[in-house]
Design a protein around this nucleic acid. Structure first.
Length: 259
DNA sequence: GCCACCGGTGGC
DNA sequence: GCCACCGGTGGC
């Protein structure tokens, strides 16, 4: 895969007690992770991903975590468990009678320390987005987490590890924070989809936009945003990449027909 | 009728 | 192979 920094994030469900809203974890070489929006839209953040629509799948199979390939190479992070070890995001946890429409959602945001390579949970999506925006120029260290955990250091155990119980994904670094009042939403698709996830931006008025083309058009039609300084550079539709191989279905080879 | 979600594809 | 974009539609 690529050799430059990438982010992965995983969705974490509960378990991350410190995470009050959806969080992802991720890191880049130095680390970063991005927040991903998890679960159903209108839910508040009082629960994280976990409670997606129905009962929750308490397990962590939906956690999304970010990781850094560079660190992987260094052997700091164990490799992704075999696919078979991963549970299908839905399925096994859901009641067979419940049509499982439960999609994985981001349970936690994590970023890897650039020094000790331990994963640190980022308490909020907002914080995660702030850190991600400049992760390349300003690497994350355990000390960075002192802003919300005064005594944390590299000597403390990792907040989370890649143990195969969660879905991890690598986030992209240096994605701009959304403009004030806007939200960047990440929806994870179900396993076997043709795409891992979708990014949407939601304007302050609630309008959802799903591509740069739509953003451009919307801004043109609502010049007040541009007047306030909103620009296209504040938008990015880059999606994280799942660590689990084959989470995304490959494009099928065309059928060969013969006579 | 709306829209969240998924599939497909053109262009690179 | 990846990704940006957008059409279609099932479920509400």
């Amino acid at each position: 895969m690529q050799s430059h920094p990438e982010e992965t994030f995983r969705m974490v469900k509960k378990e991350a007690d410190s995470c009050t809203d959806s969080c992802y974890t991720g890191h880049l070489q130095s680390t970063l992770q991005e927040p991903i929006e998890v679960s159903s839209s209108n839910k508040d953040h009082s629960h994280d991903i976990g409670d997606i629509d129905d009962q929750s799948i308490e397990d962590s199979s939906k956690q999304l975590v970010l990781y850094d390939p560079a660190a992987n190479r260094a052997g700091q992070i164990e490799h992704v468990p075999q696919p078979t070890q991963y549970q299908h995001p839905f399925g096994r946890y859901s009641d067979p009678n419940v049509p499982s429409r439960v999609l994985p959602s981001v349970g936690a945001f994590t970023i890897q320390c650039a020094k000790c390579f331990k994963w640190r949970l980022i308490p909020t999506k907002k914080k995660y987005e702030e850190l991600r925006e400049h992760i390349l120029e300003e690497p994350f260290f355990c000390e960075t987490a002192r802003a919300w955990r005064p005594d944390i250091s590299c000597d403390d155990p990792a907040d989370i590890t890649q143990d195969g119980s969660r879905l991890w994904a690598i986030d992209k670094p240096n994605i701009a924070q959304p403009p004030p009042g806007w939200q960047r939403l990440l929806r994870i698709r179900g396993e076997g989809s043709t795409k891992f996830a979708d990014v949407y931006y939601q304007s302050p008025s609630g309008k959802r936009l799903r591509s740069m083309v739509e953003v451009q058009k919307y801004l043109t039609e609502h010049p007040e945003y541009m007047t306030c300084g909103v620009t296209l550079s504040q938008f990015s539709f880059q999606i994280p990449k799942p660590l689990q191989e084959n989470y995304v279905r490959k494009r099928r080879a065309p059928n060969i027909s013969f006579i």
